[in-house]
Design a protein around this nucleic acid. Structure first.
Lengths: 204, 204
DNA sequence: GCCCTATGTTTTCGCCGTCAACATAAAGTG
DNA sequence: CACTTTATGTTGACGGCGAAAACATAGGGC
């Protein structure tokens, strides 16, 4: 039982080095809370030479983009899961979604920082990353839209309200993972709930 | 008139290399929108050897901390200036302060990213940086406190409301400088005003 | 006037991202 | 099945980086 059953497409030498590299990156991200790993470190963990990754990624940014895209996919799933738990209550959906956003960031701070970090913001973003980010953002916009349709959000511009909602949870997430909130909240979940509630309950 | 009049304390060889290095950093920050400069590049711009900076800063982080601290001082001044323009209207003060926060970020994106970036978040933050950051944060907290004293902010926890206000402007600033808001707003100032207004006007 | 110490240079080390040249093994083709 | 092609991995190199050590020099205190 040394290897795998490998029903998946088993490439040539290593056996899906591409995935192994990404897995190593995710592992460093969660274990060491370090988003600034080196390509050579990933190669070491995968047991290949330091130049092997370049057969699968044009450069470091391309690998980082892929990892970041996985983060957006996971974030979107968390948010959608939160929505599903409040089937017919748009207001509760909005609150739960905001909490999910913040909690994702706090539970995966290094990954979250990578997703929104300065390394990937240029015009050179990969299509996959852009798509994943857009899909996650769309989940939030949809929730706000449902709330607007349900009569929340007074007569104001819905676009602006959606941007405000996103800004709120994004800023709170950033401040929390940067340890900028003092005293450090013992129960982050409670703070996230309180802040999102303060926003949601301010709606007419 | 080649040099200066130098009433300031003129150190030994270079003539305040420390300041020259920080100035070079600020220049790169504003000119190239690049927060990821190298120490060697700063040394080159200052016309010294690549090891000279280590006589003034223990390591790169120490220099970055100093630059970041200057950013917090400038941010605080901008916010206080915004407050002073609305002498006796706490609600307007809060809105103007939020706008000032966002506009500072948009006008100095690289500096802002450095200030809140992952490079300086460890427990090793310099006292000066910590102090500057705290002072800036205090300006915001004071504004919220004044608003609470003036009867805004219903019976809820003021701490949470202050955190929500900060999160809102911080998140908006981050999203804007990361180009995550699409379509990119033609007039950032207007968006900042609209979002902060949406928040402030939601108060009772 | 002399020494001390703050400042700056040179050199060196190990690490990094990236590239080119080479090696190997799987897949395609007859 | 043999032979070629191509995808994958290795080795070695280059330049650049942060950092430290050894050395040089120039102001300020005595």
């Amino acid at each position: 039982m040394g290897k795998k059953q490998a029903p998946a497409p088993r490439p040539y030498h290593h056996g899906d080095l591409r995935r192994a590299l990404i897995d190593a990156a995710l592992q460093i991200l969660t274990e060491d809370q370090n988003w600034d790993f080196t390509l050579r470190e990933l190669a070491r963990r995968a047991g290949v030479s330091h130049a092997a990754p370049y057969k699968h990624f044009a450069d470091k940014q391309e690998l980082l983009s892929e990892v970041a895209a996985l983060g957006f996919i996971a974030l979107r799933q968390q948010m959608l899961k939160a929505v599903e738990q409040h089937r017919d209550d748009p207001r509760a959906q909005l609150g739960a979604m905001g909490e999910a956003y913040v909690i994702f960031a706090v539970e995966h701070p290094a990954h979250f920082r990578l997703m929104f970090g300065p390394t990937l913001i240029g015009p050179q973003r990969s299509p996959a990353l852009k798509e994943a980010a857009t899909a996650a953002r769309q989940a939030m916009v949809d929730a706000v839209r449902r709330s607007a349709a349900a009569g929340l959000f007074g007569s104001d511009n819905t676009e602006i309200q959606a941007l405000a909602a996103w800004s709120l949870v994004h800023g709170l997430a950033m401040l929390l993972i940067d340890n900028r909130v003092e005293p450090a909240p013992a129960d982050v979940r409670a703070v996230a709930a309180a802040v999102t509630k303060a926003f949601v309950s301010a709606l007419p």
